[in-house]
Amino acid sequence: MKTLLVIIITSALVNNVLLSQFLGLCPFLGVSKKSNTALGMGMAVMFVITISSGISSVIYTYVLLPWDLTYLNTIVFILVIASLVQFVEMFLKKKIPSLYRSLGVYLPLITTNCAVLGVSLLNVQKSYGIVESIVNGFATSLGFLLAIMIMSGLRERMEENDIPESFQGIPIVMITAALMSIAFYGFAGLI
C-alpha cells in the first residue's frame, strides 16, 4: 500500500508528466485554450492511459517476457495503443453515446500523444507489476489532467492581458508552463 501511495504522489505531482518529463506536450500547448476542452482532453487521456498501461503490462508480463521478445516492446505497445484508441472510440459510440459525445473528439488525438506510450515504457523500465502499472498510469494521467486544467484556467485569464506581441501565442504559454514547473518542484518535499 505504501509503495502504491508513493507511486501516486511521485507520478501525479513530483515527476509530473507534463512539467518535468515533457511527455504529452502537444495537447498541453494545443488544447489548453478553454477549460472545458482541457477537461475533455484530460479525461480522455486518463481513460486511455489507465487502460493501456494495464494492457501493455499484461502483454509484457505474459507474452513478451516468457518468449524473450522484450526488444519488440516499442512496436507492440504502439500497436496496442492505436488499436485500443480505435476500440474505445467504437465502444463508446455504440454503448455510451453520452460519454462519446464529450470525449469522442479527443480520442483520435491520443494515439500520437507521447504520454501514453511513455507511461507504458516507463512501467517496463521501472519493472512495475500489473497493479503498480495501472496505478502508475492512473496517477500519471491524473497529473496530466491537473496540469492541463491549471494551464487552461491561466490561459483564460491571460486572454485579457497585454502581452508583448512577440510573446503572444506559444511563447507566453511556455513561460507560464515554466513557472508552473518551478511551482511543482515544491512537491519534491513530499517524498
Binding site: 502537444c26 500547448l29 494545443g30 476542452t37 473528439v105 479527443y106 488525438l109 501565442g169
Partner: peptide, 12 residues
C-alpha cells in the same frame, strides 16, 4: 497529422 493538436488549439 491530426493529433499533433498544436494548430493554434483547433480541434478536428
Amino acid at each position: 497529422v491530426e493529433g499533433c493538436g498544436l494548430c493554434q488549439g483547433e480541434l478536428p
